[in-house]
Design a protein around this nucleic acid. Structure first.
Lengths: 139, 139
DNA sequence: CACTCTGTTCAATTCATATTGAACAGAGTG
DNA sequence: CACTCTGTTCAATATGAATTGAACAGAGTG
């Protein structure tokens, strides 16, 4: 459905989507809500003033930014936060070997997550061309 | 199961995994195969010479590299290749507006995919510290 | 060979998620 | 108000993926 709206030149009504994809009205309603929630699709009042029309964000980089933004803050950040807490939890300085290894892994995962977070943050903050220039051009 | 093996100080036998996770032998067999297939876990002949033991790659950066490598070549590359073909398909120079927009989106997706590919490629080729230095330090 | 100890396979089942469609609510319209 | 035209909701259902467990195959062992 996202692909359909992306490639449709005009915004589409719910009926049109239902007809084009052969899905039920209920399902179409759910799906549009999902896409709107992710800010990949906008709902507008149609030209007839009655039915809503849906249109996708046409800028592909902007689309990618929104997906990255959302997944970063809903999935990556909470995970990194949790790993940070577990890493700090430390406590007893003299633990047995088993726990040492466990803590080392936690710490490494935490570092990896933080770094991934920073890369994605850079991607979100910079312009599309700037980002790829910064990352891909030899310094 | 990956987490279990990651944090276990010693390699584990299939029975131990089954006991620790409360899953069936069949499921454990499937899961180990999956993890081995992704090169996240190694199978070795146990010290008793009879039962196999399983151990996870302990280097978290190496683990991440392997996941990136695999997903890149199994998911991203085929997609980018397809988008490239569709973009080139071009043909008729004078098409109607609908198709113009369609082709523009395809082309943008192709570019985005190629760029993502290059970033991941960089992450795979460079050392962990080098990568984050290159990407995150201001030039 | 019979017997045990492994790990694997795969059809049946369970489990989680997505989809359906009928009932519904709200906004216009006459 | 009754009626139509929307989009939404949600219990029932369909779909798809993971899990089970019993049967199996191979390797050792006596």
């Amino acid at each position: 459905m996202h692909a359909l709206l992306l490639t449709s030149a005009q915004p589409m009504t719910l009926d049109e989507i239902v007809a084009a994809l052969g899905i039920s009205k209920g399902s179409a309603s759910m799906s549009t809500r999902f896409l709107i929630d992710w800010q990949l699709v906008r709902r507008r009042i149609g030209p007839d003033g009655r039915r809503d029309v849906f249109e996708a964000e046409a800028d592909v980089w902007e689309m990618a930014r929104r997906i990255i933004l959302r997944r970063r803050q809903r999935e990556l950040e909470p995970l990194v936060r949790l790993l940070g807490q577990l890493t700090e939890f430390d406590a007893a300085p003299q633990q047995r070997t088993e726990s040492q290894r466990f803590r080392a892994i936690l710490s490494d995962l935490h570092t990896l997550g933080r770094n991934a977070n920073r890369v994605l943050d850079l991607a979100l903050k910079l312009d599309r061309t700037t980002f790829f220039k910064r990352v891909l051009m030899r310094p």
